[in-house]
């Protein structure tokens, strides 16, 4: 385990050190101390590193992550794991707005709650939230899975494309073109796998599934106000 003191050595040194690690590096385990809510920690990592951030982070921690496993032992600020490609990001605490925004792959696990716009424009990422999520989550979500063990806020899945949403608790309201769909056996299996990857022991049968009604897929004047 190599320890990096953000306060002493600074952001640029942190990210350039992480970027310098190739897939074959022996230095795979990293610990970042004194994050103190700083922005852009461990962004653009492109190697199978195991990085632990000891404390809360600011904007865009683990942004565009590839291959790495990044653990945040605290709360995550806005846009955590934005546009993640692969690998995984695990947050012990809560996540601020835009968690996993536009993510294209990998797994994002939030053990606390997520604020608004969780999984906005997601494009293939799997997001598992142990707690609740805020309003406008999965807005324009295109692909991937959003699992919520708690409750969802207003306008869930507004203008949804092909992403799947599973919610165990209540949904305050559904957004335009988002509907509840039948939970068939194959969805239970998908969800079981997601929950296992999300380190969550919830029972898949307790969840409801939401998806796109696909009414906005081709422009129809009768739906003009919903666009």
């Amino acid at each position: 385990m190599q320890t990096f003191d953000l306060e002493a050595d600074g952001l640029r040194a942190l990210n350039s050190t992480l970027h310098a690690q190739k897939e074959s590096t022996n230095a795979t385990a990293w610990e970042i101390i004194n994050p103190k809510g700083s922005h852009a920690l461990a962004v653009g990592v492109d190697a199978p590193l195991d990085i632990t951030v000891r404390g809360s982070t600011g904007y865009y921690c683990a942004g565009m992550n590839k291959l790495a496993t990044i653990r945040i032992k605290g709360n995550a600020g806005p846009g955590v794991a934005e546009n993640m490609m692969s690998g995984s990001v695990i947050i012990d605490g809560d996540a601020s707005q835009y968690a996993g925004a536009t993510g294209r792959g990998g797994t994002l696990v939030i053990k606390g709650n997520a604020a608004s716009r969780c999984g906005i424009s997601m494009k293939g990422i799997d997001i598992i939230v142990h707690g609740n999520i805020g309003h406008m989550s999965a807005f324009m979500a295109q692909s991937g899975n959003l699992v919520v063990c708690g409750d969802a806020g207003d306008a869930l899945g507004d203008s949804l494309y092909e992403a799947r949403i599973f919610v165990r608790g209540s949904v305050r309201s559904l957004g335009a073109d988002c509907i509840e769909k039948e939970m068939r056996p194959e969805h239970i299996e998908i969800l079981r796998d997601l929950l296992a990857r999300g380190e969550c022991d919830a029972d898949p049968s307790e969840f409801r599934r939401y998806g796109s009604a696909r009414n906005l897929y081709n422009f129809n004047v009768d739906n003009a106000s919903a666009y």
């Binding site: 952001l11 990210n15 852009a40 962004v43 653009g44 600011g58 942004g63 934005e82």
Partner: peptide, 22 residues
């Protein structure tokens, strides 16, 4: 999707610079 306003934009630009090594 992940920022609004010039105060946030400054942080978004920081992230893009960090990803691409300035």
């Amino acid at each position: 999707p992940d920022w609004t306003g010039p105060d946030d934009l400054e942080i978004k630009i920081l992230e893009l610079r960090e990803i691409t090594g300035w």
